[in-house]
Computed example of a mutant assay.
Amino acid sequence: MAVKTESYYVPAQSPWPIIGALGLFLLALGAGMWAAGIAGICGPVIFGSGTLVMTIMLFGWFSNVIKESHSGLYSAQMDRSFRQGMSWFIFSEVMFFGAFFGALFYARVLSVPWLGGAGNNAMTNEVLWPDFTAIWPLTLTPGGLETTAMGWFGLPLINTIILLSSSVTAHLAHLALLREQRQPLKMWLGVTVLLGLAFLGLQLWEYLHAYHELGLRLDSGIYGNTFFLLTGFHGAHVTLGALMLFVMWLRILKGHFTPAHHFGFQASSWYWHFVDVVWLCLFVFVYIL
């Protein structure tokens, strides 16, 4: 009796991985030069070029995968490969944010008490910073720069409600897809994208408020560093997640996805829920505690 084997599609050589690597390199180089103030306007220009290259890569690679899927080239094994790949990608993102949260906890739980003379570190306090007060957030730098901490009430709380609501609407869109309800699917997913854009707009407003009214900047000591790095990287992930969901919305308008075959939508939904969980941790550990 012949054993039936399942074919596994192997795509042809593609330029998108090397283009993506180039885009990430330009983003990192431009961001570094921009933050360090090197070569004037070159940093922002290089960063913008990297953003453009990454956008072209994402749309081009998505387009190739969509065409391959609609051509019937993907098997059940391929679907499992996609799921494993997305799972590992999200795990890598967990580790990415874990490193920044780890740095925050190290500063708050270990470094700040040490500088304040906790334990057997009285001499450390006297030698390094005699007038240091071990409290968090640190609103005074060793250089004398004083800032104001960002409270949790107001824009941060509104953004938390918006992002949690977007997670609910994304889930409602998924349920509508499983029930083959196309109109509710379009509506709920469109609302999710709009909520994501609203979150980004309010975060920009929050940054302007922090810079101009609170004196809270990236160079405002360890507190300013951790605040802008954590919230800034999260904002970048929200931008990517909103872009992914927007692409899914465009595909739905074209009639793509069925209850049995919709991993592209599901992967974007996974990523969006991950972004929401990270924000909850940020809201608690950066804004409230």
Rank of each mutant, 00 (worst) to 15 (best):
L240C: 03
G196V: 02
A242K: 00
M244P: 09
V238E: 05
I252N: 05
T231Y: 04
T239G: 12
L229E: 07
L229G: 01
L208W: 05
A242I: 11
H212L: 15
L208T: 01
T231H: 05
G241Y: 03
T239Q: 00
A242D: 11
L243R: 00
E206K: 05
W205K: 13
Y211W: 14
G241S: 11
G201Y: 06
F246W: 12
L243E: 01
F227K: 00
D219K: 00
G224W: 04
L200C: 05
F199A: 01
L253R: 14
H237L: 06
E206A: 14
I252Q: 04
A236Y: 10
L253M: 15
F233A: 14
T231E: 09
G241Q: 03
E206H: 10
V238A: 12
H256R: 10
F227G: 04
F228C: 06
A210H: 08
G241N: 06
G241E: 05
A236L: 15
L218Y: 12
A236Q: 01
L250D: 06
L245Q: 10
G196Q: 02
G215N: 07
L197N: 00
W249M: 12
L218H: 07
L197Q: 02
Y207N: 10
A236W: 10
Q203E: 07
M248T: 13
E213Y: 15
F246C: 14
G235F: 03
L240H: 08
T258P: 02
F227I: 04
R217D: 10
F199W: 03
L230S: 03
F246D: 05
Y211M: 08
L245Y: 09
L216H: 03
G241C: 00
G196D: 01
F233V: 13
F228S: 05
W249L: 15
T231M: 10
G255A: 01
A198D: 03
A242T: 15
T239L: 15
L218F: 15
A198H: 01
G255V: 02
H234W: 14
M244I: 15
